[in-house]
Design a protein around this nucleic acid. Structure first.
Length: 857
RNA sequence: GCCCGAGUGGCGGAAUGGUAGACGCUGCGGACUUAAAAUCCGUUUCCCCUAGGGAGUGAGGGUUCAAGUCCCUCCUCGGGCACCA
């Protein structure tokens, strides 16, 4: 090989250009611009102590390629990065070591930032955000106060998942199969005072909004299922011999005449009144045992249903029939009314229960005649009504409405809609989260607040938020905006209080305050009470917010990260709107993406934002597995660190290979050998373009080269738009292989090539551009246009098929007529041998592609 | 159990209903070299008596001149939900 060949010193090249970009602020986004905008957003990482792993950059590289490509297309591009840095691990580490979580978090962020910078992203680092920064969480608290003011926050004793090992309350979503999602520790039920957000008030809007979104279908489906809308009826059954009624929810009012028993959940408030004397002990015992069961037990025991007869009866509002009422834990208190009418003939669960307890099963719907084989019970389908008095013979589906009408006219029922979605338990009994900016006062001070003009009175919710503590009802008051951020106080010990309260509850200096009802100012109660009647004794809310809070609105803060006056300037928000591309893991399909939509829609309803939906276009990158095909994990020892890869092959190779592995959305294994392949490709590019002996000035003179170049520009452009980066890279490999074999090619060809390579391997592209004599940065060049007229070849290859099988081929000049081609095909020696003794029944000619002769005999 | 998605060489994967296996990896053979690395060239779906032919995209059917691609049934894997009345 040529002695003058330079090594591909990727380390030096990458360092050089990363420094250049940083110094020049190459990727600074304009706040507002004449240019159209493109906002590429990554799900920001939680900066863990383990550092970045190879899966993180996959999405970042994809969004970075788009960002760089769009910039070359003339867009004002924003590609920001930040840190979702509140969370359990830093707190756990603090409990173990006494290190302040902010210190751990700072170190982890520094390491993450270093790692991400080493990959060479087109990130505007001036817009970096951090959810644990008081200047950031001030606005998280501010949004909470808005929700509070609108009555969308309340406090309730809730049976919640308590994890003894983590000493923390977990959200439903953080419990998987009866264990904590983090760490896999067992969890149990415990009643605790919780701050809850009324996300259910947005159930309908969140459901409807999905239709408009350009999201993966599976993600939309998951959210739809999570919201779980169903239509049906609420029906009141009078309790026999009492004045009360039992209200049930059903989606099948058409099966009302088939109800042969009723069930109430063990936690149902009417249960006590329903139980007759003789059954008291038995029911009490049953309720107690049900309370002990975790959800895991309930699921495991799903095959074996359990329940107890209460001794009471209800009256079917239409038939007048007396129906026994049971208590059973297969009915959930948290859904519908916590009570059902059981129709064993047409519901699998009721059928199972009825079989087990010998309860009558009465069919009220028969399948339509055509499918009369479908005659087994339970029968879930539609059909015609039987055993249903006046409704007999009618179609069951139409009967739903008729029965509801009938119930409504008798004032014993109405149509109803139900959702599986529950309100969002928003409090965590932890230290390392945003403090919830509320204070608690007694009733008389609350009434005083209601009658004292000032910021507090003006930001009270429509209904008082209360909580009972030690037998006394306390009332929640909001801190005013002027008191934000409410900073986390210093604490001696990060261990939660044994009661399940947050460590903040142990800091009385912070907890017990004098609160001014006019101004909302606070001072510690250790200080003397000011001599002013507006100062009252109060205690602070000690719960902190869940990790989801900060990520509900971070996409907005990137638009205006330093703004001390509002969470985002409305002009900037109007210009940028939402992200044009949002990429992250599918594991956030429901939680983060639903919570963020909720907050965003709320802010839209408040008139604070111009758009109702936060993320119009969403994409999930697929997991990168270890080389052994298993999920990367420390314990298996198959984790690949980007640091190691960059050290050995460089950031450009890492970027290119992550995209070359396979389709972006696919789950695919890492391969050490595979990265050598793309690294070789980059070395080849480096070698080829540095050896300028083959290059000549002016336009490309070789027609094949010119055609392939423009085919490559076209394919790469299309592939980027379709997020098919693996295909784009293949095509570039084809081109470099061609140039390597060519005797010479023009400088303009080389420049066009590195321009389309630049979004993928930006450092190498910059270096070659500089060597070829380009000034400034390659990112300033406009994206090359594919000249489609060059793609038409002078000669076309036509394939000859007989009965769809390849039998020959020939080249023809562009524009050869059909007859000539067919004649040539039919006289082709090989084709002829397959036509012998047969009759041609059909001749197909696909222009420019193939001839197919269908033969018979 | 229910709802999705996916099955293509030794491997990762290409293929608007139109030449299956592009591109890359691996293996094998060769060139260069004292040697190695690097680089380059050839070869790599399977079967057959290798001229050439036959089979082939999880299995079986179907539609079509033509099916990896569309339709039906089934199998396997992956993901989600899981007593929500």
């Amino acid at each position: 090989m040529a002695e003058d060949e330079q090594n591909y010193d990727f380390s030096a090249i990458e360092k050089k250009w990363q420094d250049y970009w940083e110094q020049q602020k190459t990727f600074r986004a304009e706040d507002i611009s004449e240019k159209p905008k493109f906002y590429a957003l990554d799900m920001f990482p939680y900066p863990s102590g383990a550092g970045l792993h190879i899966g993180h950059p996959e999405g970042y590289v994809a969004s970075d390629i788009l960002a760089r490509y769009k910039r070359a297309c003339g867009y004002n591009v924003l590609h920001p990065m930040g840190w979702d840095a509140f969370g359990l691990p830093a707190e756990q580490y603090a409990i173990k070591t006494g290190t302040h979580p902010s210190e751990t978090t700072k170190n982890n962020i520094d390491n993450f930032r270093r790692q991400i910078k080493s990959i060479g992203f087109a990130i505007d680092w001036d817009r970096e955000i951090n959810t644990t920064d008081p200047n950031y969480y001030q606005w998280t608290q501010w949004i909470f106060l808005k929700l509070f003011q609108r009555g969308l926050a309340y406090v309730d004793e809730k049976p919640v998942w308590w994890c003894p090992a983590l000493r923390a309350v977990l959200a439903n979503e953080e419990v998987v199969d009866g264990k904590s999602e983090v760490g896999g520790h067992p969890v149990e039920r415990k009643n605790l005072r919780q701050v809850v957000l009324k996300i259910t008030a947005y159930a309908e809007k969140l459901l409807e909004g999905l239709d408009e979104l350009d999201w993966p279908d599976s993600t939309k489906r998951q959210q739809k299922a999570w919201i779980g809308r169903s239509e049906g009826a609420e029906i009141q059954f009078k309790i026999d011999g009492q004045d009360h009624s039992l209200t049930v929810y059903t989606t099948r009012p058409d099966t009302l005449f088939g109800a042969t028993y009723m069930v109430v959940a063990p936690e149902h408030p009417l249960l006590e009144q329903l139980v007759i004397c003789e059954k008291k002990d038995q029911v009490k015992e049953y309720v107690q045992s049900a309370a002990k069961k975790s959800d895991l037990d309930r699921t495991d025991l799903a095959k074996e249903k359990s329940g107890v007869f209460t001794g009471s009866y209800c009256i079917n509002p239409l038939s007048g029939e007396r129906i026994p009422v049971w208590v059973a834990d297969y009915v959930l208190i948290s859904y519908g009314t916590g009570a059902i009418m059981a129709v064993p003939a047409h519901d699998e669960r009721d059928y199972e229960f009825a079989e087990q307890f010998n309860i009558p099963i009465r069919r009220v719907i028969i399948p339509p005649e055509e499918s009369s084989k479908e005659d087994k019970l339970p029968y879930i389908g539609s059909g015609n009504m039987v055993n249903s008095a006046d409704f007999n013979g009618m179609d069951a589906n139409t009967c739903k409405g008729k029965i509801i009408e009938d119930l409504e006219s008798k004032a014993v029922g109405k149509s109803a809609i139900n959702y599986k979605l529950r309100d969002w338990i928003f409090s965590r009994q932890r230290y390392w989260g945003e403090p919830i900016p509320l204070v608690w006062v007694n009733q008389s001070d609350f009434e005083k607040a209601q009658n004292t003009e000032g910021v507090i009175k003006n930001s009270l919710p429509p209904e008082a938020v209360t909580s009972v503590k030690d037998g006394e009802t306390l009332y929640a008051l909001p801190l005013p905006d002027s008191e934000l951020p409410l900073k986390l106080p210093e604490v001696e010990n990060y261990q939660p209080a044994g009661t399940g309260e947050s460590p903040l509850a142990t800091i009385s200096e912070w907890l017990d305050i004098w609160f001014n009802l006019t101004t909302g100012k606070t001072i510690s109660r250790k200080d003397e009470k000011p001599d002013d009647e507006n100062w009252v004794a109060a205690t602070r809310e000690t719960n902190t917010m869940p990790q989801w809070a900060g990520s509900c609105w971070y996409h907005l803060r990137y638009l205006d990260p330093q703004n001390p006056k509002s969470l985002v300037d409305s002009q900037k928000e109007a210009y940028w709107g939402g992200p044009d591309f949002y990429i992250g893991g599918a594991e956030h399909a429901v939680l983060h993406l639903l919570y963020a939509r909720f907050w965003h829609r709320f802010l839209f309803d408040e008139g604070i934002l111009a758009n109702p939906e936060p993320y119009n276009k969403l994409f999930h990158q697929g997991l990168i597995l270890g080389e052994d095909g298993n999920k990367m994990s420390k314990s298996v020892g198959n984790v690949v660190s980007p640091d190691v890869v960059i050290d050995a092959y460089g950031a450009d190779s890492l970027r290119l290979f992550e995209m070359f592995l396979g389709p972006l959305e696919a789950v695919k294994p890492w391969s050490e050998k595979g990265i050598e392949g793309v690294h070789r490709f980059l070395r080849k590019v480096h070698r080829e373009f540095l050896n300028q002996k083959k290059q000549h000035k002016g336009e490309e003179t070789n027609k094949d080269t010119l055609r392939l170049l423009h085919e490559t520009i076209l394919k790469v452009t299309e592939a980027i738009n379709d997020l098919r980066f693996n295909v784009a890279i293949s095509q570039m490999m084809i081109l470099i292989n061609h140039l390597q074999k060519a005797n010479s090619y023009s400088e303009s060809t080389a420049t066009a090539f590195i321009q389309i390579l630049a979004p993928f391997a930006p450092h190498l592209a910059e270096e070659i551009y500089a060597i070829l004599g380009g000034s400034g940065s390659i990112v300033e060049l406009a994206w090359p246009k594919a000249r489609k007229e060059l793609l038409i070849a002078e000669e076309i290859t036509i394939v000859f098929q007989v009965n769809g099988k390849l039998r020959g081929q020939a080249k023809f000049p562009q524009g050869t007529d059909k007859e000539t081609i067919l004649a040539t095909a039919k006289s082709d020696a090989k084709v002829l041998s397959f036509l012998e003794g047969k009759e041609i029944v059909k001749e197909i000619y696909v222009p420019g592609k193939l001839v197919n002769l269908a033969v018979k005999g």
